[in-house]
Protein backbone atom coordinates (compact mmCIF):
# COMPACT_ATOMS: atom_id res chain seq x y z
CA UNK A 1 0.00 0.00 0.00
CA UNK A 2 1.09 3.54 -0.60
CA UNK A 3 0.07 6.79 0.97
CA UNK A 4 -1.33 9.34 -1.47
CA UNK A 5 -2.41 12.87 -0.83
CA UNK A 6 -4.21 14.92 -3.39
CA UNK A 7 -6.53 17.87 -3.61
CA UNK A 8 -9.65 16.93 -5.53
CA UNK A 9 -12.12 19.65 -6.42
CA UNK A 10 -10.74 21.78 -3.63
CA UNK A 11 -10.71 19.16 -0.90
CA UNK A 12 -7.52 17.52 0.37
CA UNK A 13 -7.67 13.75 0.73
CA UNK A 14 -5.04 11.44 2.14
CA UNK A 15 -5.46 7.70 1.72
CA UNK A 16 -3.69 4.38 1.62
CA UNK A 17 -4.02 2.84 -1.82
CA UNK A 18 -2.70 -0.22 -3.54
CA UNK A 19 -0.14 0.86 -6.16
CA UNK A 20 -2.26 -0.64 -8.91
CA UNK A 21 -5.27 1.51 -8.07
CA UNK A 22 -6.21 3.55 -11.10
CA UNK A 23 -6.77 7.23 -10.42
CA UNK A 24 -10.26 6.91 -11.85
CA UNK A 25 -11.13 4.13 -9.39
CA UNK A 26 -9.59 6.09 -6.55
CA UNK A 27 -11.78 9.05 -7.44
CA UNK A 28 -14.91 6.97 -7.90
CA UNK A 29 -14.65 4.14 -5.39
CA UNK A 30 -12.23 5.69 -2.93
CA UNK A 31 -13.40 9.29 -2.74
CA UNK A 32 -16.95 8.95 -4.03
CA UNK A 33 -16.31 11.44 -6.81
CA UNK A 34 -18.47 9.50 -9.25
CA UNK A 35 -19.06 12.35 -11.66
CA UNK A 36 -16.20 11.07 -13.81
CA UNK A 37 -17.22 7.84 -15.56
CA UNK A 38 -15.14 5.13 -17.26
CA UNK A 39 -15.80 4.15 -20.86
CA UNK A 40 -12.90 1.98 -21.97
CA UNK A 41 -9.75 0.19 -20.94
CA UNK A 42 -7.34 1.43 -23.60
CA UNK A 43 -7.27 5.21 -23.01
CA UNK A 44 -9.23 5.83 -26.21
CA UNK A 45 -12.62 7.13 -25.16
CA UNK A 46 -11.68 9.98 -22.84
CA UNK A 47 -14.84 9.73 -20.71
CA UNK A 48 -12.65 9.76 -17.61
CA UNK A 49 -10.77 12.96 -18.51
CA UNK A 50 -9.94 15.19 -15.54
CA UNK A 51 -7.55 18.05 -15.00
CA UNK A 52 -4.36 17.10 -13.14
CA UNK A 53 -2.10 19.97 -12.14
CA UNK A 54 -3.69 22.02 -14.88
CA UNK A 55 -3.43 19.46 -17.68
CA UNK A 56 -6.15 17.24 -19.07
CA UNK A 57 -5.39 13.57 -18.43
CA UNK A 58 -7.28 10.33 -18.83
CA UNK A 59 -7.73 9.22 -15.26
CA UNK A 60 -8.05 5.57 -16.28
CA UNK A 61 -4.46 5.69 -17.54
CA UNK A 62 -2.95 7.27 -14.45
CA UNK A 63 -2.23 5.38 -11.25
CA UNK A 64 -3.43 7.00 -8.07
CA UNK A 65 0.15 6.84 -6.80
CA UNK A 66 1.26 8.93 -9.77
CA UNK A 67 -1.20 11.60 -8.67
CA UNK A 68 0.33 11.86 -5.20
CA UNK A 69 0.61 15.56 -4.44
CA UNK A 70 -1.51 16.56 -7.42
CA UNK A 71 -4.33 19.02 -7.74
CA UNK A 72 -7.24 17.34 -9.52
CA UNK A 73 -10.30 19.03 -10.93
CA UNK A 74 -13.18 16.89 -12.12
CA UNK A 75 -16.44 17.87 -13.75
CA UNK A 76 -17.83 18.13 -10.23
CA UNK A 77 -15.40 20.87 -9.33
CA UNK A 78 -15.55 22.87 -12.53
CA UNK A 79 -18.39 25.21 -11.68
CA UNK A 80 -17.75 28.18 -9.44
CA UNK A 81 -20.41 27.45 -6.86
CA UNK A 82 -23.76 27.72 -8.61
CA UNK A 83 -22.16 29.48 -11.58
CA UNK A 84 -21.35 27.02 -14.33
CA UNK A 85 -18.20 27.25 -16.36
CA UNK A 86 -18.88 28.83 -19.78
CA UNK A 87 -18.14 25.50 -21.42
CA UNK A 88 -20.83 23.80 -19.35
CA UNK A 89 -23.30 26.53 -20.26
CA UNK A 90 -22.44 26.34 -23.93
CA UNK A 91 -22.87 22.57 -24.01
CA UNK A 92 -26.39 23.03 -22.76
CA UNK A 93 -27.24 25.96 -24.98
CA UNK A 94 -25.98 24.18 -28.10
CA UNK A 95 -27.24 20.70 -27.20
CA UNK A 96 -23.71 19.35 -27.07
CA UNK A 97 -24.77 16.26 -25.15
CA UNK A 98 -27.39 13.57 -25.31
CA UNK A 99 -26.83 10.57 -23.05
CA UNK A 100 -24.20 12.57 -21.19
CA UNK A 101 -21.76 9.75 -20.55
CA UNK A 102 -18.90 11.29 -22.53
CA UNK A 103 -19.83 14.75 -21.29
CA UNK A 104 -17.67 15.05 -18.15
CA UNK A 105 -14.57 14.10 -20.11
CA UNK A 106 -15.58 16.06 -23.17
CA UNK A 107 -16.17 19.21 -21.13
CA UNK A 108 -12.84 18.83 -19.32
CA UNK A 109 -11.05 18.30 -22.65
CA UNK A 110 -12.73 21.38 -24.08
CA UNK A 111 -11.81 23.49 -21.06
CA UNK A 112 -8.20 22.36 -21.45
CA UNK A 113 -8.21 23.17 -25.15
CA UNK A 114 -9.56 26.68 -24.64
CA UNK A 115 -7.02 27.39 -21.94
CA UNK A 116 -4.25 26.75 -24.47
CA UNK A 117 -5.98 28.03 -27.56
CA UNK A 118 -8.55 30.73 -26.77
CA UNK A 119 -9.46 31.27 -30.42
CA UNK A 120 -9.58 27.86 -32.06
CA UNK A 121 -10.86 27.25 -35.56
CA UNK A 122 -13.49 24.56 -36.08
CA UNK A 123 -10.73 22.22 -37.23
CA UNK A 124 -8.65 22.95 -34.14
CA UNK A 125 -11.65 22.23 -31.94
CA UNK A 126 -12.22 18.92 -33.69
CA UNK A 127 -8.59 17.92 -33.19
CA UNK A 128 -8.54 19.32 -29.67
CA UNK A 129 -11.25 16.86 -28.62
CA UNK A 130 -10.04 13.95 -30.72
CA UNK A 131 -9.18 11.97 -27.62
CA UNK A 132 -12.82 11.96 -26.54
CA UNK A 133 -15.38 9.74 -28.20
CA UNK A 134 -19.06 10.60 -28.31
CA UNK A 135 -21.56 8.16 -29.75
CA UNK A 136 -24.67 10.35 -29.61
CA UNK A 137 -24.06 13.77 -31.11
CA UNK A 138 -21.94 13.29 -34.21
CA UNK A 139 -19.80 16.00 -32.54
CA UNK A 140 -21.34 18.87 -34.48
CA UNK A 141 -23.10 20.47 -31.54
CA UNK A 142 -20.12 19.82 -29.31
CA UNK A 143 -17.94 21.72 -31.75
CA UNK A 144 -20.49 24.55 -31.84
CA UNK A 145 -20.57 24.61 -28.06
CA UNK A 146 -16.80 24.81 -27.75
CA UNK A 147 -16.59 27.60 -30.34
CA UNK A 148 -19.34 29.45 -28.52
CA UNK A 149 -17.66 29.01 -25.15
CA UNK A 150 -14.40 30.27 -26.65
CA UNK A 151 -16.17 33.37 -27.81
CA UNK A 152 -17.77 33.81 -24.39
CA UNK A 153 -14.45 33.34 -22.62
CA UNK A 154 -12.86 35.94 -24.86
CA UNK A 155 -15.56 38.32 -23.76
CA UNK A 156 -17.24 38.46 -27.14
CA UNK A 157 -20.55 37.00 -26.05
CA UNK A 158 -22.04 33.70 -27.01
CA UNK A 159 -21.62 32.33 -30.49
CA UNK A 160 -24.57 33.19 -32.70
CA UNK A 161 -26.56 30.79 -34.81
CA UNK A 162 -26.48 27.78 -32.57
CA UNK A 163 -29.23 26.08 -34.48
CA UNK A 164 -30.87 26.19 -37.83
CA UNK A 165 -34.07 26.75 -35.88
CA UNK A 166 -34.94 29.93 -34.01
CA UNK A 167 -33.46 30.28 -30.53
CA UNK A 168 -35.31 28.90 -27.59
CA UNK A 169 -37.01 30.84 -24.95
CA UNK A 170 -35.70 31.04 -21.44
CA UNK A 171 -33.96 27.85 -20.40
CA UNK A 172 -35.64 26.12 -17.51
Amino acid sequence: MARVRMRVDGVVYEDEVSPRTLLTHHLRDGLGRVGTPIGCDTSNCGSCTVSMDGDSVKSCSVLAVQADGAEITTIQGLADGPEWHPVQKAFREHHGLQCGYCTPGMVMAAVDLLKRNPSPTEDEVRHGIEGNLCRCTGYQNIVKAVLSAASELRGEGAHPGAFSTPPAGVPA
Binding site: G35, T74, Q76, R92, T103, A168, P171, A172
Partner: peptide
Amino acid sequence: RGRRRKEDPKLLTGQT
Protein backbone atom coordinates in the same frame (compact mmCIF):
# COMPACT_ATOMS: atom_id res chain seq x y z
CA ARG B 1 -39.98 25.15 -29.60
CA GLY B 2 -36.25 24.55 -29.15
CA ARG B 3 -36.30 24.10 -25.39
CA ARG B 4 -32.96 23.38 -23.79
CA ARG B 5 -33.11 20.09 -22.03
CA LYS B 6 -34.20 19.43 -18.48
CA GLU B 7 -31.84 16.47 -18.42
CA ASP B 8 -28.70 18.53 -18.90
CA PRO B 9 -27.89 20.14 -15.53
CA LYS B 10 -27.09 16.86 -13.79
CA LEU B 11 -25.23 15.52 -16.81
CA LEU B 12 -23.11 18.64 -17.12
CA THR B 13 -22.14 18.81 -13.48
CA GLY B 14 -21.35 15.18 -12.80
CA GLN B 15 -24.45 14.51 -10.71
CA THR B 16 -25.62 11.72 -12.93
